[in-house]
Design a protein around this nucleic acid. Sequence first.
DNA 1: TTGTCGTGACGAACAGTGTTCTTCCATGGA
DNA 2: TCCATGGAAGAACACTGTTCGTCACGACAA
Lengths: 239, 239
Amino acid sequence: MTSAAPRSSWSGQWQEKEKGGSRRQPLTRERIVEAALRIVDTEGMDALSMRRVGQELDTGAASLYAHVGNKEELVDLVLDLAYSEIELERPDPAAWQEQVKRLMRRSRDVLLGHRDLAKAAVVANVPRTPHAMDVAENMLAILRAGGLDEQTAAYGVDLLGLYTTATTFEASTRSGGNSQEFTDQVLAYFGTIPVDRYPMITSMAVALTRNVWGERFEFGLDILVAGLARQGGGTDPAA
Amino acid sequence: MTSAAPRSSWSGQWQEKEKGGSRRQPLTRERIVEAALRIVDTEGMDALSMRRVGQELDTGAASLYAHVGNKEELVDLVLDLAYSEIELERPDPAAWQEQVKRLMRRSRDVLLGHRDLAKAAVVANVPRTPHAMDVAENMLAILRAGGLDEQTAAYGVDLLGLYTTATTFEASTRSGGNSQEFTDQVLAYFGTIPVDRYPMITSMAVALTRNVWGERFEFGLDILVAGLARQGGGTDPAA
DNA sequence: TTGTCGTGACGAACAGTGTTCTTCCATGGA
DNA sequence: TCCATGGAAGAACACTGTTCGTCACGACAA
């Protein structure tokens, strides 16, 4: 792998060596995380390995460990970089429910924008990296501004985060192939299962596989936000 | 590994060879799945490897592939075996909301009874194995008996399944160590983050980490069931 | 200028993983 | 009795994350 593009060769020295910096670019934590995210974007989470990241930076896997500790930490950093793309809301008590929904949709869109990165999000339970915590902080501020009591807001942010990551992960696994193609496969499968054992599933097959744009996501979103409003004594403009 | 307990040796022949069956027990799909579940129960999902299962049955990993295809299929079978433990409900229109909750709690309890098996459940998106579909079928029957319209029931069973698996997976990762210990760790961490950047998180730390028995789970459960009732025109005894 | 020191780079290796190939042998049927 | 079939199993392949020991380079001291 490295022998295909030798580092101490002609072009390498000619191009980059002069300024006194190390050969090539100096391989920082930041460059590693960016390379990793690039791999996730183009090849998916399963392709993300330490060797693959090393290759992306024209080096080996071992070199990365001077900057990241281990793979889990690298994945956390990649996820955090993605979270930094999520635009936050300035809490407006009058429109808190719509703000929650917007923030949720935006989180979903950002995650979906990076292939199946949501797989990492569903594993990373509690937000603990800076930008993940920014999102949680923002959500809490919106919920509290909406008038929800402390405990409801606390449980709420957890519930909403759970919903976003789980539902997005689900969606990302399905859009690996065409979404319609997946729907057809499931429908075909439902046609093969015994009707007497699964009368509901077989008779409701089309409803179960229905998947117009974000309808499914919005369905749960409505329920959650309305539920939080009722539960926590928030400002409730008829939901 | 096998050389530690040679198969064609004394005790092996003496004990088991006579009945005309193959040496030892005949290594069926069922025995493999049971062994795998046993490993998950005692050592967790991360310890579940083909070689480990082979070892559990005094054989090698290669021998398993005559019965299971690949590891993914094996995990599906293990998960399905666990799902078979979930006791179902005979739909009662008058008590559908409580029935939904009972089924959810039981699913959660069964999954939690097998260490972090929920990790497999969160990956296995749509129920497609027999017993997983039994649970889905039962849930659909309950929702429909409760008067929910078809599409709400269809989205609902998906949403409820998502909630169960995601929340159970979350819980299983936390109870790896003591639950209180985990809470303390998070609380301690929240004490180190900058207050000016995370005013909400820092001030609400105790509410965020609150974790009395199943309160957190019940919180989301109430919201979801009540939301489905309102959304789908179900029998609504004041939720 | 010379010498030393420390740190990042990195090839090799270790202990795993899922999976496949090929051999082998015991069994059931002819 | 002989043969064919299929399960068992060791070895091997291509991976994985991670560690170790070496090595070379840049910076700083004499």
